[in-house]
């Protein structure tokens, strides 16, 4: 029993996954659809082996991950400092907040035509779309987090004579980290959603392209391999973000 308790965070998901696969197989068997329309787990598994063996899966996965990583990093690098400025300065906020609020609800997918026109075909338009999909939520979340900082901490900072750099490095940044991390987790998930859509249109590689290309070749087993890998990587990203981005002082 001890063994189960200790490993239950591992054991329970494994059990539900096995059940899900069994259900999948059962539905395929009894639905009467052909394997072309709804391939079962074993067929998809074969497809997975094939795609791994010839290196396609690896190539496409790396392409997608690369785009998300670059787009996300750009959004973080620009969004957090700009968010801090927006949160600290009333004037900056009044100038730019309406613009951010206006651009934010425009789906990144609506930018695809312009992105392709501006950046051609290849990595760049996809990176640009990922950037857009992360940037606005990061900037907003950062600005709000700055404004939510308990005013007493600013009083403490003035009392102990913090200069401007110290106010940013010892007060604002540590204070907003918990909120910003939540925003990063959400926005990288959105970025991962968007990259697949972008790759279906703007590029010739990546998991999105794999799915589209396989559909054109009527290989639904490859389509499902693509979907499974996308879901699995999304899960991994979230686990990694959760593990490594836990602020040590917790919520306060």
């Amino acid at each position: 029993m001890k063994w189960i308790n200790k490993n239950s965070s591992f054991l329970l998901p494994t059990v539900t996954t096995i059940i899900a696969f069994a259900l999948w197989e059962a539905i395929v068997r009894f639905s009467g659809w052909s394997n072309q329309v709804f391939p079962g787990p074993s067929l998809v598994f074969d497809g997975l082996i094939e795609l791994v063996a010839d290196g396609t899966l690896f190539k496409h996965t790396v392409a997608s991950l690369y785009r998300v990583t670059v787009g996300f990093y750009l959004a973080v690098l620009l969004g957090i400092p700009l968010g801090i400025i927006l949160g600290m300065s009333r004037i900056a906020n009044e100038m730019f907040n309406p613009m951010v609020q206006f651009l934010r609800p425009i789906s990144p997918l609506a930018w695809i035509p312009l992105a392709m026109l501006w950046f051609g075909i290849g990595d760049n338009p996809a990176i640009f779309l990922i950037f857009l999909s992360c940037f606005f939520s990061i900037i907003m979340a950062t600005a709000i987090a700055v404004r939510r900082i308990n005013p007493i901490y600013f009083q403490v900072a003035t009392n102990f004579n913090f200069n401007r750099t110290e106010i940013i490095s010892k007060l604002i940044i540590p204070a907003i980290i918990p909120d910003v991390i939540t925003a990063l987790r959400l926005s990288i998930a959105v970025g991962w959603l968007v990259v697949v859509a972008a790759e279906m249109i703007a590029v010739q590689s990546g998991l999105g392209y794999l799915i589209l290309d396989s559909r054109n070749a009527l290989r639904m087993d490859y389509v499902m391999v693509g979907m499974i890998v996308i879901g699995w990587i999304g899960l991994c990203i979230d686990i990694i973000m959760q593990k490594f981005c836990k602020p040590k002082w917790g919520a306060y």
Partner: peptide, 20 residues
Amino acid sequence: KHASSNHIFVFQQNGLLPWM
């Protein structure tokens, strides 16, 4: 006109910086 670093204030609550 402003707070001074040799006049220290003990706050009614939450005066410690929680990340330090």
